[in-house]
């Protein structure tokens, strides 16, 4: 309609720049039903299956010593991989955000690289390095050092897949904040370390927490890469996700979903804290995290 006479009442004009009530309701309905069916239902299934035979059967899954070995291994791996990537991420963000140098965007691309590599390939590259026929395989064997099918291999693969998390959150955040506050502190005589501790760190703390949260969730839940390097030695090199796989393939569904419910719970806590940080401290997070 090309009615330009401006006689139309205001509500009509507003409707012309919006979808009608019916269409709106239909779109909201479709989106919510789609998300419920595709995303929420699988999550619900985990808990439904875990408690399918009651609380007793659920708890029984944790009476197995292998389950506890898996839990301990996963905690150990995360306790090494997450701090490593935290220190790396802060160092990388300091170098990249606080200074101007040639080749900066190439460096950022390289740091992001692990995100575009398939988890299975992330495991494979460590097999090619440390496997028995690998580049360093012979030397490692001669010196009696075990990397593959042991804790070091699992840690390395986990560090690889979670490598970009902290850096890519902190870089845009610190770039946005600029250097003025640090320069002021330095001019007033503070040392570099003192400046970092009292000026930079308080500015990036929520972004840091946010990225550590996501990094930890991925580190504890990683499956593909770890599956390739772990060797699946039961009660020795099985992480929680690998233990879930073994139980599932043995048709021990209740136990598989019971152990999986630990990881699903971790995912829920991560999501809740992440959303909380976004609502509460959205302005103090990196631009990628804000939406």
């Amino acid at each position: 309609m090309s009615d330009l006479s401006l006689t139309a009442a205001a509500p009509v004009q507003e409707d012309a720049a919006n979808e009608g009530r019916l269409v709106r309701g239909l779109l909201i309905g479709t989106a919510v039903v789609f998300l419920a069916l595709f995303l929420v239902l699988p999550l619900f299934t985990v808990f439904a299956q875990a408690f399918a035979r009651g609380v007793g059967a659920y708890l029984e899954a944790f009476s197995e010593p292998d389950a506890w070995t898996a839990i301990r291994l996963t905690l150990t791996v995360a306790a090494i991989a997450v701090p490593f990537n935290l220190v790396f991420g802060v160092a990388a963000a300091w170098a990249i955000a606080k200074f101007e140098f040639t080749g900066k965007s190439l460096l950022i691309t390289l740091i992001d690289l692990p995100f575009s590599v398939s988890p299975v390939v992330s495991g494979l590259i460590y097999v090619l390095l440390f496997g028995s026929q690998g580049l360093f395989g012979g030397w490692l064997q001669a010196n009696g050092i075990q990397i593959l099918f042991a804790l070091p291999g699992i840690v390395l693969a986990t560090v690889f897949v979670t490598f970009p998390f902290v850096a890519r959150e902190l870089i845009p955040l610190m770039q946005e904040q600029g250097n003025a506050e640090e320069e002021a502190a330095l001019t007033l005589g503070a040392t570099g370390l003192h400046t970092f501790r009292t000026v930079t760190l308080p500015n990036i703390r929520w972004g840091l927490l946010y990225s550590v949260l996501l990094c930890n969730a991925r580190a504890m839940g990683e499956f593909g890469a770890v599956s390739v390097v772990s060797g699946h030695i039961r009660g020795l090199t099985n992480t929680i996700p690998l233990h879930v796989e073994i139980l599932y393939n043995e048709y021990n569904f209740v136990a598989a979903f019971a152990v999986a419910s630990l990881l699903a719970g971790l995912a829920l806590v991560t999501l809740a804290l992440k959303s909380l940080l976004e609502w509460r401290y959205g302005a103090e997070l990196g631009s990628r995290a804000r939406h």
């Binding site: 699988p42 969730a217 839940g221 879930v244 979903f257 829920l268 999501l271 992440k274 609502w279």
Partner: peptide, 25 residues
């Protein structure tokens, strides 16, 4: 806001857990 948070579920849920849940569904 809840729906918005749910969108990130596949990022947070470990792939093996999603895998067995989808398989049993």
């Amino acid at each position: 806001k809840l729906v918005d948070a749910v969108v990130d579920l596949p990022f947070a849920l470990p792939t093996a857990v999603a895998g067995i849940a989808l398989a049993s569904l």
